[in-house]
Design a protein around this nucleic acid. Structure first.
Lengths: 187, 187
DNA sequence: TTCTTAATCAAACACTTTGTTCTGTAAATA
DNA sequence: TATTTACAGAACAAAGTGTTTGATTAAGAA
């Protein structure tokens, strides 16, 4: 990728995420973004066809960092999941979230963050299926499995939102305990 | 309220909610709304200063119907909440939701429905505090109470969304059981 | 270094959307 | 009936969108 492209891309990302903390997504105009990022109008549209694409790509890039080196099931010693190891994974992700705290915070709490939340749940769904839910274990449960997955993902997004609203005062370990406290009895 | 006002208001509500099933909120223009509702431009703006106000007022009106005659704590015989009575309340609300299914479905699943979801949780938070959470009972729990309330509300919204995505095939009673299954062990 | 490619910029463009303001008309209520 | 009050229609400025043009300028390869 061309150095100029990277530079432009980053400038737009920075300008955009900064603006999201002050203004709602829908009220931010392309004009304002290119003014703050100091790039030409043509340049912006050559990078991102629409404003939605800009948000989408910014989310993707962020998630790749957050979920990238989450411990894989193959790498753990025991194949049968214990609550301890799924807690580890949650803690791990929460640490990554804290690293990218500012931008995450902006995206998760900003008005019109529903697109972001959708992507977030989507990414987390895989982890829930692989790591947290023990496949085959819950066949006999009263609730359908797809509902259970959706419930746990939504609970995770919710806990992160609550965390961000409290300025991330609690430690990732404590958060993971909260998460286990409300989802543990189910899985 | 003037008969003409009511008529105009309803016409706009109907046009708007119909359009939300086809188009995303952000892409719907005032021009399209007034064309479909067949009202003048001036009229629209005299009713709703912005498009956001339109959505907000439509939500409020809907919620008042859904949450209106939910059984009050004062009307129940026992003041100490049992899981049975909270289940009753949930079932009751779900029945109301099913009545208004079409419009609820549109609002909860449409893109840019985050405002709606926020209002929904807001309304439900009160019920959680009064009916579902037994005040004083959870002081010793490991999780903070405000987190618990947020978690339960989010779980309820989530269950309703899942329900709508499945075309409301399940009965309200079964849904209430699911809800109890995932939140019951906590409260 | 030099050459070639590709990204950027500035300006202007047609177009859509927004929200306001005007005046005349029709319907509600007292 | 008389008097409010809501509505319609049209025109309006202001702002935003997405595209086109041609000229610069920087990057990467020879």
């Amino acid at each position: 990728m061309d150095r100029r492209q990277r530079k432009t891309r980053e400038a737009i990302f920075n300008a955009f995420s900064e603006m999201l903390s002050n203004k709602s997504y829908s009220r931010i105009t392309v004009q304002e973004i290119i003014d703050k990022a100091d790039v030409g109008r043509t340049t912006f549209y050559s990078h991102f066809p629409t404003k939605d694409d800009l948000l989408r790509e910014m989310c993707s890039e962020l998630f790749e960092h957050v979920f990238s080196d989450a411990p894989e099931a193959e790498q753990t010693h025991d194949f049968s999941m214990t609550s301890g190891s799924s807690k580890e994974i949650v803690t791990h992700i929460l640490y990554h979230l804290k690293e990218h705290g500012r931008r995450m915070s902006i995206l998760l709490t900003c008005e019109s963050g529903e697109l972001f939340q959708r992507y977030f749940k989507q990414y987390f769904n895989n982890l829930v299926m692989i790591h947290i839910l023990n496949p085959g274990k819950h066949k006999t449960t009263v609730v359908p499995e797809d509902f259970l997955i959706a419930h746990i993902s939504a609970s995770f997004v919710n806990i992160v939102q609550w965390w961000l609203e409290n300025n991330m005062e609690q430690s990732p370990e404590l958060l993971a305990e909260y998460f286990e406290a409300v989802t543990g009895p189910i899985v």
